[in-house]
Write a protein that binds this DNA or RNA. Structure first.
Lengths: 220, 220
DNA sequence: ATAACTTGCAACACTGATGACGCAAGTAGC
DNA sequence: GCTACTTGCGTCATCAGTGTTGCAAGTTAT
C-alpha cells in the first residue's frame, strides 16, 4: 500500500458527521485537520488490519482488529469512535479505489472489448485484498451507495455499447449480464492460487462471452 | 411448506450431540422422542421464521426470530438450546433437501444436458426460500459439510460426462465451471421477480453454455 | 376428565463487546 | 530542547444478547 493517507483523512472528515450518536457521550475526536505522521501511519495500519481481520471473520472484535494492527484497542477507538465508523471508513476507502479502477479503464470511450478487459483486470486487482470492504456495497453510507450505483450504470452502458458493437448477442438481457459479470469477478477473486490479474481477467471475460459449452451443438 | 416435521425431528436428535457445552448448565432438552402436534408446529414455525429473519439479517437476534415465529423467546430456547444449535439444525434441514433435489435429477445417469437442466431447476426451487440456510455450507456440522462435498463431486462428475458428450468444450476447467455454475444459480436465485423455476433454469443453463457473446466474432 | 405436555411471562445471572477517561511515557517536528 | 501530539495501559460504566428457571394458564390426547 502506497498512500492510504489522503483517503484515510477524507474518511475522518466524513466520519465526524455524527449521524445520530447512539452511544453515550461524544463522537469521534476526528477533526478535519492534518494528523501527525505517526498518527497517519496508525490510521492506515488500522484500516488494513481491519480489512484482513474482517475478511477472515466479519464478526471479528475491535480487540482482534487492534491486535492485528499492532495497537491498543483504545487507540482504535480514538481514531474511529465506533465500529460502524470504522467499517464505513473502510467501505468508503475501498469503494473509491474501486470507482477509480473502473474509471481508469475508460469504459465509456474505449472500444467495448478493450474496455471490458481492462475494467475486469483493474477491478480484480482491487477486489483481491479488499474483499471485505467491497462486500459492504450495501453500506449505510449514502456516498458508498451512490458510487456503487454509478459504477453499476457505467457497467450497463458498457454492455449496451458492446451489444451494439456486436460483441454481445443482440438479445442479451443487460441487467442479467451485469449480474453474471459481477458474479464471475467475485468468483475469480476468490481463487487464492493463480492470482495473476491478467490471467484472471481473461478467464472472466472468456467465460462471460463464450460460456462453457461447445460452439454450435444441436442443443435441446 | 408441507411437512417439515420429519426433518425437524431428525435435527433435534442430531442437536443433542452437545459437542462441548460452552454455556453454563444443560444442553437442549431435545430428546429423540416424538413431540406433541402443537410442539412440532412450533418447531417448524421457528425454523421457517429463522430462515426468513436470518435471510434478511444474518446477525438477527433470537428475539427477532422468536417474534417472526410468533413465539416467546424462551420457547425458542426450549427447542434449540443455543443459537448455534438452531442455525445448524436449519442448515442440516436445508442441506438434506438440497441433496435430495440433486439426487432426484439423476445427475449420474440421465443424459448430461437433461441432467443439467433438471438439476438446475430442482436446486433453484430449493434455493429460493432457503437462501440463508444454504449459505451455511461451511457449517461446523460435519454432516452438512459431507453432504455438500458429495454434491460437489456429483456436480463435477456430471460436468465431466457433459464434456465427454461434447456438451462442454474439451478444454474447460471443471472446477472453475462448477464454481461458475454455482454462482449463476446463486445469482438466479436472487431474482425476486420472475421466479418461475423453469425459466430461471433455462436462463442459467443457457448462460453457462453459451455465455453472453456473439457466436464467432473475431475476438481479441 | 384428567394427566401430561406446552407456552407465555417475568425475572435473573452471566458474558463479551463497546466506549470513555486519565495518566505516564514516548515521539514528532519546530 | 521544548512543546504538542500520540500511544499504551489500566480502569470503569454500560449494554445487548444469551441462556436459565419457576409458575400459571392453556392445550392435547387418551
Amino acid at each position: 500500500m502506497t498512500s492510504a493517507y489522503a483517503f484515510a483523512m477524507e474518511m475522518q472528515s466524513q466520519a465526524q458527521a455524527d449521524t445520530s450518536g447512539k452511544p453515550h457521550g461524544k463522537a469521534a475526536p476526528a477533526g478535519g485537520r492534518p494528523l501527525r505522521a505517526d498518527a497517519e501511519r496508525t490510521v492506515t495500519a488500522i484500516l488494513e488490519a481491519a480489512e484482513r481481520t474482517l475478511g477472515r471473520d466479519p464478526a471479528a472484535t475491535m480487540e482482534q482488529i487492534a491486535e492485528a494492527a499492532g495497537v491498543a484497542r483504545t487507540t482504535v477507538h480514538r481514531r474511529f469512535a465506533t465500529r460502524e465508523v470504522l467499517v464505513d471508513a473502510l467501505a468508503l476507502w475501498a469503494t473509491r479505489r474501486f470507482a477509480a479502477a473502473v474509471a481508469e479503464a475508460r469504459p465509456d470511450t474505449a472500444p467495448p472489448l478493450v474496455a471490458l478487459y481492462r475494467t475486469t483486470a483493474n477491478v480484480l486487482a482491487i477486489k483481491v485484498g479488499w474483499g471485505f470492504a467491497m462486500s459492504q456495497a450495501s453500506s449505510a453510507d449514502p456516498e458508498v451507495a451512490r458510487i456503487h450505483a454509478e459504477v453499476r450504470e457505467t457497467c450497463e452502458r458498457l454492455f449496451v455499447r458492446a451489444r451494439e458493437a456486436g460483441v454481445l448477442r443482440p438479445d442479451v438481457d443487460v441487467p442479467w449480464t451485469r449480474q453474471v459479470y459481477y458474479a464471475l469477478i467475485h468468483q475469480a477473486a476468490q481463487r487464492r492460487d493463480d492470482s495473476d490479474p491478467d490471467a484472471l481477467a481473461t478467464l472472466v471475460v472468456d467465460t462471460l462471452l463464450r460460456g462453457a459449452g461447445t460452439p454450435h451443438p444441436d442443443r435441446l
